[in-house]
Design a binder for these strands. Structure first.
Lengths: 207, 207
DNA sequence: CTATGTGAATTTATTCACAGCA
DNA sequence: TGCTGTGAATAAATTCACATAG
């Protein structure tokens, strides 16, 4: 398996494959072909095969892929083969919803700490997590938490990012509607639901 | 201005330009160059110019773009030049957060109706919107609401989509972690925060 | 005969380089 | 001189077509 540059788009699709494969596993599938998977998730079979072939040859000709094995392989590629703890900052409407969001478990994520700067919220327990004061963010250093989730208002996002980075975080999921500046080694993925909604009308039929 | 196929990626970036331009307008900018905008949002100047040039020549050589005029142009391109009403289905944790989300106003969106199937939630008022029973979804027909936001659990997402489409919705923002089937004329944009979080570890430094 | 894996062809998007206008 | 708009060049991603393996 010689070195290859992996397309970002491939990495974007792998979590989708993982989700659907997990579904097939639960339904009792032992093997699955790229064509079956394809029908389920709306991606061409050859796209799936090429994506996977970037990392080696996982399938068996004439049979397809071993579902359980493929799940393990993809988890390894995405570095999801170990439980990953995350810390969330900003326990407002959105932050609380993210704290309670059930979808992270599938990928091995666990939100293990939550912070806010509002004294009314500190001490509250949401989904078994006690909200702490933001001044406690440095304590993440001793806790093996490398992922930060930012759900604070725009004005506070940069300072929050700085605090998280100083506490050893190297990956950030940013819900603030702005870019944040971080050292090169830190990866930021931004989610902005308004941005996605804003391009919907363009694609809608006019009247 | 001859016809051109507009790249999807351009459409994805336009709402970002719009957001930042609005910021510059508030700061009192009258004109702005592609270079200034570029520094602010982390996209190359020539990318911005090419994106805009797809739709015509908006700028003035040596000066740049008239901020206010450019905002109007982009809104028109994205069909955001009129207030757009949306209906939300599924007033759980995530749905409530989306209902309260302040970021939609910038793009002229207003959530004008909310539905749930849980009798405990029906009648509740969140952000001035009274939650109605899902059986009332067909009433959207008379209300000029063409956008649906789906924040229900996975099992309910397809049936919700069907109900919305039957009520005249032609654009859907889907927060359910699955694909939904709709007629070709209906555009669906799916947001899945777990999917985005899942590709973060891949890009993070190992130890 | 079925389904993978992969080079080659094609399509799509980004970057460059520069002509031309104020 | 400064900045736009755009054809040309480059890079990236998708699609195809088929050799190959069970």
């Amino acid at each position: 398996m010689p070195y290859r540059k992996i397309p970002d788009e491939t990495i974007r699709r792998l979590p989708i494959y993982l989700r659907d494969l997990t579904g097939f596993l639960k339904q009792g599938y032992k093997n699955i072909s790229s064509k079956e998977l394809s029908g389920h998730l709306g991606v061409n079979p050859w796209q799936i095969r090429k994506d996977l072939s970037n990392f080696g040859a996982f399938g068996t000709c004439g049979v397809g892929y071993d579902v359980e094995k493929l799940i393990r392989q993809i988890k390894k590629i995405l570095k999801l083969d170990t439980i990953r703890k995350a810390a969330l900052v900003g326990v407002g409407n959105l932050g609380s919803a993210v704290l309670a969001y059930p979808g992270f478990a599938l990928y091995g994520f666990e939100i293990a700490a939550a912070f806010d700067n509002d004294s009314k919220k500190i001490g509250k327990v949401i989904n078994k997590i006690t909200v702490q004061d933001v001044s406690k963010i440095p304590s993440l250093k001793n806790k093996d938490i490398r992922i930060g989730i930012i759900t604070v208002p725009r004005q506070a996002s940069q300072i929050t990012a700085d605090a998280l980075v100083n506490a050893g975080v190297t990956g950030i999921l940013n819900f603030s509607p702005c870019r944040i500046k971080v050292p090169k080694k830190v990866k930021v993925i931004t989610i902005n639901i308004a941005l996605d909604l804003a391009r919907l009308p363009y694609y809608m039929p006019t009247r």
